[in-house]
Every structure is written in structure tokens, then in C-alpha cells.
Amino acid sequence: MSILSLNNISFSYGSTPVLSNLSYEFEKGRMYCIVGKSGAGKTTLLSLLSGLAKPSSGSICYNGEDIKDIDKYKFRSKYIGVIFQSYNLLTKFTALENVVLSMDIAGVKGIEKKKRAMELLENVGLDEDEATRRILHLSGGQQQRVAIARALSYDPDIILADEPTGNLDSDTQQEIMDIFRRLSQAGKCVILVSHSPEVAAMCDERFELKKVSVPTKKRKSTIF
């Protein structure tokens, strides 16, 4: 059973249609890449999937339940982890504080939150010194890692990432992709938005968007 499904969704900005009658199903343990040219609606689709925007028509279902019927704050803070293209971290906070705050918002209980956050940051390649630095004092790659750690902090089922490697050098890009791969292997549904063929090649499935058109579905064989 799919964890997230698109059922004939359409979306338009005013009178300009962006997505039209889109249907797709995302499953746990797989890594998806939404590709398409600029203006094809990749980021818009990501916004719809993360609950930040509502489709004009159709429905998006999480575990079979329309996300309209789920509290949007609960959906965003518990079920889905979003890694924004520009990271959207709280710049005056440290990396650790960003992650802990995310856990607080999600209502994660326990006194070990700080320890757990530190582990997450270490898992994405940040040491203690980097973890206690304010975001503004971290590089783009380090911020990307913090954003990933934050998205994982409350253990969501779905990870959405918008251009996760867009601003990174090839080595860092590979490291980040490795992290996503490990997540999908751990049973998470990882959905990436990218226009990079390399990134698309590393995903299990590619979901191509075309301007106001029904996307074509190309099922790939397992890469790894």
C-alpha cells in the first residue's frame, strides 16, 4: 500500500495552471526523484505534498487518508520531513537548537532530545563544534546537513527534499545522496526534487513533470 498518493490533483496560480490531473503513488523504502524543466511545477508539487499548499482539485492521501482531514500542523511536524532548497533554518539558532526545536514542535517526549539531536547531526557528518555553531556560521553543505537532521528529528515516514544537492560540490553531493539512500533503505519514503540527471539516476524512480501536462511514469529497475 502506498504511503502517499496523488489522485488527479490539479493546481494553478490564479488563472495559470501549473499542475493538471496528476496521479501518482509513493511507497515506503523507495527513493523518488521528481524531475522536470524550470516552471514545470516541481517545487509546487513538493509544497502540495508537504501540506503547505492545497490542490485546486483532486486529493493527496497519506496512508489512505486525505491530508485535508489531517491537522496540517500535525502533518507537517510529525508525518513528513521537508528539506527546503534554501534550508529555511533559524539563522540565529545553532544547528543543535534547530534540531531540538523541531523535536519540541513535533512533541517528541523525553529528556534525551539534545543527545538524540547530536546523534542525528553526527550521522549527517557534523561534529560537536559545528553542531553548536549558529547557522550563519556554517557552510551551505553543513546547513544542508542540518536541514536533513532537522527533517529526521521526529522520525517521519516521508522525507521531501527540494534540490538537495543544488548548491553542493560533487563530493558533498555524493555524501548527501548516500544519506538519502540509507534513509530509504531504512524504510522511509524519500522524495527528491531535482533537475540533476545524476541525482535522478541515483533514485529508484523518476517522476517527470511537464508544463501543464499529465506526467509520464517511467518505472526503473533497481539501481543498486
Binding site: 500542523y73 511536524s77 521537508v82 533559524l90 526545536l101 532537522r150
Partner: peptide
């Protein structure tokens, strides 16, 4: 921006 980030993270 801070408000946007917090609400995007799921803070009411």
C-alpha cells in the same frame, strides 16, 4: 521569515 520557518515546521 522566522514565522514562515516555524509554521512550515509545523508550529501552530
Amino acid at each position: 521569515y522566522e514565522i514562515g520557518v516555524l509554521t512550515a515546521m509545523g508550529m501552530k
